[in-house]
Design a protein around this nucleic acid. Sequence first.
DNA 1: TCTGGGGTCCTAGGACCC
DNA 2: TCTGGGGTCCTAGGACCC
Length: 399
Amino acid sequence: MCSTRASIIHADLDAFYASVEQRDHPHLRGKPMAVGGGVILAASYEARAFGVRTAMNLRTARSLCPNIISVDPRMDAYSRASKEVFEIFKDTTPLVEPISIDEAFLDVSGLGRLVGSPTEIAVNLRARVLAEVGLAISVGVARTKFLAKVASGVCKPDGLLVVEPDEELAFLHPLPVQALWGVGPKTADKLASRGITTVGQVAALGDRSLVGILGRASGNHLHALAHNNDPRRVVTGKRRSSIGSQRALGSKQRSFAELEAILLELVDRVTVRLRDGHRVGRTITLRFRFGDFTRDTRSHTLSEATCSTAEILDAARVLLVARRGEIAERQLTLLGLTIGNLASADTVQQSLPFETRSSPELDEAIDRVRGKFGGSSIGRATLVNHKGGLTVPMLPDPQ
DNA sequence: TCTGGGGTCCTAGGACCC
DNA sequence: TCTGGGGTCCTAGGACCC
């Protein structure tokens, strides 16, 4: 199932936003600097040396590093740089799995000898990104995705690390538990309270005790990773399963009318992105954060997927109004909106009650969908029997 | 470390169905 | 009529990642 040699590459741009700024503005090079206004989105390595970190607010950063220079983010520049780097990835191998704006897995196992060994490919990749885009990129090469990612993290910044199959556990086991994908502060604490601080100790622990400590999914997952057991392949063509937007409100008291206006902005931002991506969604989730930093969510699932601003706004407003009193009492500091349960708008799923098997009602339902999604592009409906109802995928006309 | 904005996956209980 | 087993969907919340 898995390749027997190290042929999965994890490529990760170093301090991405900050590096783009240093590339474009020579006076920032070699200096401690950060991207972000109130809160830091990315810090240069020079700033990190002072302890400055992502998500830290600027005031704290200044107390650690008085000379830090902050610049406003330029998202357009970052997505342009990202596109250029991903072009080089795709030129290297068709098997590219994006993880975020600055990170991807590449499977180079199928490339012939003419192109070179995985190590040679990785060396070449780093050289091209630097020469053509002007950015440093760290690359890990290993037999599994997990280990390739660990390797790129270990060799950062501007590094290359190949972990050969016979060195895997010797490399992995001395690392701290946080090196395991899925171990954050909470899980690390749970393990530390039992004296477990290294990957090797996790590996020695055994499946059952780990499941006992962390639950089934987490326990099995970490047990597998600690033995470098990671069968996941590099997958291309993945699509997002939710789209969201949020707004920090600061400490200002907002009227309910103001909140409704902010909600409309969020709905508008999200539905534009849905329509641009030809996606529709069914589950609307509102996210709240309060003055005491507690947070929670309220969600509602519609019977039909939609990308309509009006429909999503209606549903979201119901969720907001339901908490009106509470919001007034407790200081609301963040409002977020996420649309989940996404489907492609090109194959619209319309759920119908059981009684509508008869064709007039079905035709009517199809007309409704047709009207909602711009009609003429939808040509064909197929019935699928479904528990509790019928699902009608609407397929676009072949031509 | 007193907190941005964008995501993913998992769990658990309740409703409902067969 | 009662009870058990098995499954899916929805909702809310937790943890984690970049």
